[in-house]
Design a protein around this nucleic acid. Structure first.
Lengths: 196, 196
DNA sequence: ACGCAAGTTGTACTTCAGTACAATCGCATT
DNA sequence: AATGCGATTGTACTGAAGTACAACTTGCGT
């Protein structure tokens, strides 16, 4: 059982191809509505798409599996797309079997990309620019608490370790959530560890 | 204010050096007792240490900041130590100022290593062996739920996305916790994302 | 002296996460 | 047919997490 699949395209041939490969593929009703956890397949030739380095994509991809397809895929675009957080990048008219592989990989939380793109990504690892640490907005104490929480420690454990009360730990964590615009310690963990 | 610092060494000269640099440095009472979140400074010449690739270290380093020191540090050992999850690797008799830098970096959740060691680590990134996916023990459905949780989604969101009840999500997550030997979704998140 | 930010803690409350104990259903293997 | 596993859901409970509102202290710069 796969989540709902919304297909953003204006190519009716592609739509038919996908509908022949999966039950439940549909064109989205509201332009960019997205149910959390659903799958969005986006034809990169869809008109008026924001650039892949726009932060709007990261927000979206946090709550939805985004698969980007192109009738003429290229590594440059694929690189940008995956950096933006997409779950997959593949040929829009790929055979049914391949598409099913991609979908099942994505639903299982994997990232799908072609071989040449993967190699390019691996080579890029060494040249990661020193990213500005998002934790700099936190005070020293808040950063300590945030890192402890992001290691998987409970409030009680952190309190004992830092020799403060659990109440104080909560205060610091609430401040961290606020400053980092996250809702809970799991999202904090992801942020601290540079995921998403 | 720093957590308690336990110094595992048999070199009384080193112990004095550290005690002169920090308040609260003490020899551990019970051999390997460790309070969650405290700092363990381990002289790698301490007798009978397990090899750094022993899994026992990963468990330990999950709940404690471990700093490994050596009176004669070398990159080989440093590499193994940091791979095992240590927070720092440095010269045991480093000047007070440096030690304080190391401690404050560690308490802030950073990893400290000398420059040559850092360069070596960077070069190693490309040669990471394909690690056996720990999630293979999960069923397909459990893996879906685990990945959703590890993206920061709440039980309610996951339930909506997969079109099942929140109760079922809890059931799957409990199974995941059990199979992966973790206590909660934060630790699951770390595991799924290959941290620690 | 004054303001301000950071750190600390308290009480009280709401909501979420996680567990215990159980039950039903489908499917595949024996 | 029987057994077992995975998926699903229920009720009920405990404890942790997070928020609201508020207060006190310390240090630092003006």
């Amino acid at each position: 059982m796969t989540p709902a699949i919304y297909f953003y395209t204006q190519d009716s041939g592609l739509l038919r191809h996908w509908q022949a490969s999966f039950d439940g593929v549909e064109l989205p009703q509201q332009e960019w509505a997205h149910a959390a956890g659903s799958i969005a397949v986006i034809d990169s030739q869809y008109p008026m798409l924001p650039a892949w380095n726009e932060p709007i994509w990261q927000q979206r991809m946090q709550h939805q599996y985004v698969i980007v397809v192109n009738t003429c895929p290229n590594d440059e675009e694929g690189y940008a797309v995956l950096l933006a957080g997409a779950a997959a990048y593949c040929h829009a008219a790929a055979p049914k079997e391949l598409l099913q592989q991609v979908i099942s990989a994505v639903v299982s939380g994997e990232i799908w990309a072609g071989r040449s793109l993967v190699l390019r990504l691996l080579n890029a690892v060494n040249r990661l620019p020193a990213k500005p640490d998002p934790l700099l907005v936190l005070s020293d104490r808040e950063r300590e608490v945030a890192h402890a929480a992001a290691r998987g420690q409970s409030n009680k454990e952190i309190a004992r370790a830092l020799n403060i009360t659990e109440r104080t730990v909560k205060a610091h964590l609430s401040a961290c959530f606020e400053k980092l615009s996250v809702n809970d310690r799991v999202q904090l963990t992801l942020r601290v560890n540079g995921i998403n």
